[in-house]
């Protein structure tokens, strides 16, 4: 992979009144990478995406987009496209008209795509001449992506692009993004769906309360050996439960939502090694394992763990500050 940096952020801070939206954020996104931004509501994802699109300037810190400094008085360079807080579309225009008018806003000599081709890429050819007023959320998302593609971006910034998409639409959009990345376009996207990020992104950055709590490859996040909850379904649930209780490092989670109301399912909490030991014991006891799966994905678990930890740290810092006054 080309190691040229598409997005380089260092010490980025953005404050709105009393709210610190971004707190000394560092971010590096390599060219051609699909990079996920994830975090709970209010973590600063949209603000960071907005800075990349040149919608606002950081209060402190440095941000470089496609090798060009961006900030107060320094707009984002050509080749950056995308949307935050949903695509901006005009309901009284058709899908085709929305894209055609957007083309008029391109600087002279800027590379632009073909409207029909962009619509075809996102699967909206059939709805090209319908007014956007009647579009579903998913269709709007896809049209927003088409608008972004039309400008042949080198950096594509998307806020929740899978929002409102049905499985077919999601597959379509994922395919488009993967193809763009393969052609060298850098994609930075935010999502609440960990499965989306897992499926699309090579690297993710987790934000919590405006701070980066993780930034790196997705596999590094999911490979961390931490205790997870697993749904376990066996041919003899009572015996399996007894074995889980006896196995060191394994605990049975009582009253878990993942088990109820299915009484055949038990939920156990364990690290991978202890889980392996439990499975061995069950098999040796001639009990068949019909299902064994994490209640939440390792990535989601890591996300929850990291963000909860960050919130606890922040609360602790605040308490110390208040007690020190």
């Amino acid at each position: 992979m080309d190691t040229t940096i598409a997005v380089r952020g260092h010490g980025i801070t953005k404050v709105f009144g009393d709210v610190v939206a971004l707190d000394h954020v560092d971010l590096n996104v390599a060219q051609g990478q699909i990079h996920g931004l994830v975090g709970p509501n209010g973590a600063g994802k949209t603000t960071l995406l907005g800075l990349m699109l040149g919608l606002a300037a950081a209060d402190t810190g440095e941000l470089e987009i496609l090798g060009t400094p961006v900030g107060r008085g320094l707009p984002a360079p050509d080749g950056v496209s995308g949307f935050v807080d949903g695509p901006g579309l005009y309901p009284t225009l058709t899908a085709r008209q929305n894209l055609a008018t957007l083309l008029t806003l391109q600087p002279e000599g800027a590379p632009v795509g073909d409207v029909g081709e962009a619509l075809a890429q996102v699967g909206l050819t059939g709805a090209a001449d319908q007014k956007v007023r009647g579009f579903s959320l998913g269709m709007r998302q896809r049209l927003g992506l088409a608008a972004a593609l039309l400008t042949r971006p080198r950096l594509l910034v998307l806020d929740e692009p899978s929002n409102g998409l049905d499985p077919v639409g999601k597959k379509h959009v994922h395919g488009v993004l993967r193809r763009l990345a393969a052609e060298g376009t850098t994609v930075v996207l935010s999502s609440h769906r960990m499965d989306d990020l897992e499926a699309l992104c090579s690297e993710v950055t987790i934000l919590s309360a405006g701070r980066v709590v993780f930034s790196g490859p997705v596999r590094k996040l999911s490979d961390d050996d931490r205790e997870l909850d697993y749904r376990l379904r066996a041919t003899d649930p009572s015996a399996a439960r007894a074995l889980a209780v006896e196995t060191p490092g394994v605990g049975v989670v009582e009253g878990s939502d993942a088990a109820l109301p299915d009484t055949d399912v038990i939920v156990v909490r364990a690290r991978v090694a202890a889980l392996d030991e439990l499975v061995g014991r069950i098999v040796r006891a001639d009990i068949a394992v019909r299902e064994l799966a994490p209640v939440v994905s390792p990535l989601e678990s890591a996300f929850l763990s990291l963000t909860e930890q960050a919130v606890l740290t922040e609360q602790s810092d605040k308490s110390e500050q208040e007690s020190g006054r």
């Binding site: 496609l66 060009t68 707009p75 050509d78 806003l105 800027a110 080198r154 701070r211 709590v213």
Partner: peptide, 30 residues
């Protein structure tokens, strides 16, 4: 916990897109 990966090295200015060219006013009016 804050974990970051080492940033890949980028040659200064490599792949620089250059300053944004203005959109003609007539186009925006249209």
């Amino acid at each position: 916990m804050t974990t970051t990966v080492d940033a890949p090295t980028a040659a200064p200015g490599a792949g620089a897109a250059g300053p944004r060219r203005p959109v003609p006013l007539g186009n925006i009016v249209w």
